[in-house]
């Protein structure tokens, strides 16, 4: 597993939007997978590494959510409901963004990159294919970092949990993030009036992929051979 050669997409215009600059500042530091060198390479080792990484990512993603402008004004039960529905979408969108520009490899972390062969060995081929479809979609769109952080916040606000108490407050959050995306896109791509819509239209595939991933890790949990930390288990059980 080697460090990929990463190409970054350069933004054009200067982003003044307060929500977006706040989201950029709230973006978590990178996390390393640190696979256990004492374990022999196997599917169990790969899945153990991914589940451990996911658990640590979840902690920082919950911290990140609290910094989304307006999120902390929601009731605690509503904050929980959104995160319980959207946590896997957030994890996957982060993997997808890290993997942009890396030829057919999934960058779970800087020190943990998977190609098709490695995904197959870990029993993750279907998931690999699905996530790669998202990578290709965002590669062709040339997703900017600013668009990525805003889209990630939208995925959370748009979680469609069945347990929301105050829909008006959630809708207000959705509207402010949507407005931020539109303003951002109009600065970055003034020539392309369809771009915000095109970005929003990627979200169904993200949700579908996240559902696949949750189902897959629920099966792995049932199997009982891969150790999982408490937060990851707690959120798997929320489904």
């Amino acid at each position: 597993l080697s460090l990929p050669q990463k190409k970054t997409f350069l933004g054009g215009g200067h982003v003044e939007n307060k929500v977006v600059s706040h989201l950029l500042g709230a973006e978590p530091e990178k996390i390393y997978a640190m696979p256990d060198p004492a374990l022999p390479d196997s599917d169990i080792k790969a899945l153990t590494t991914l589940c451990d990484l996911a658990d640590r990512e979840l902690v920082v993603n919950i911290g990140w959510a609290k910094h989304i402008p307006g999120f902390s004004s929601l009731s605690l039960p509503d904050q929980m409901s959104l995160l319980q529905s959207a946590w896997m979408e957030i994890l996957i969108l982060r993997v997808v963004f890290r993997s942009l520009g890396c030829e057919d490899q999934l960058v779970f972390a800087e020190d943990y990159v998977m190609n098709e062969e490695q995904a197959k060995l870990a029993g993750l081929q279907d998931l690999y294919t699905a996530i790669l479809q998202l990578v290709r979609k965002y590669t062709s769109i040339k997703l900017h970092r600013e668009e990525f952080v805003t889209l990630k916040a939208i995925a959370l606000a748009n979680a469609d949990s069945m347990h929301i108490e105050d829909w008006v407050a959630v809708q207000r959050l959705q509207d402010s993030l949507h407005a931020a995306l539109q303003e951002l896109v109009s600065v970055l791509h003034p020539e392309d009036g369809q771009r915000a819509g095109r970005l929003i239209m990627t979200l169904p595939l993200l949700r579908q992929t996240a559902a696949k991933a949750v189902q897959h890790f629920c099966n792995i949990k049932q199997d009982g051979r891969v150790p999982m930390h408490k937060l990851f288990l707690e959120l798997l059980e929320a489904h």
Binding site: K18, I62, I68, G70, S72, E234
Partner: peptide
Amino acid sequence: KEKHKILHRLLQNSTSPVDL
């Protein structure tokens, strides 16, 4: 809620609400 105690605790910890 008891089932989701870690999430609950992490959300409660030192929240600094942001309202722009």
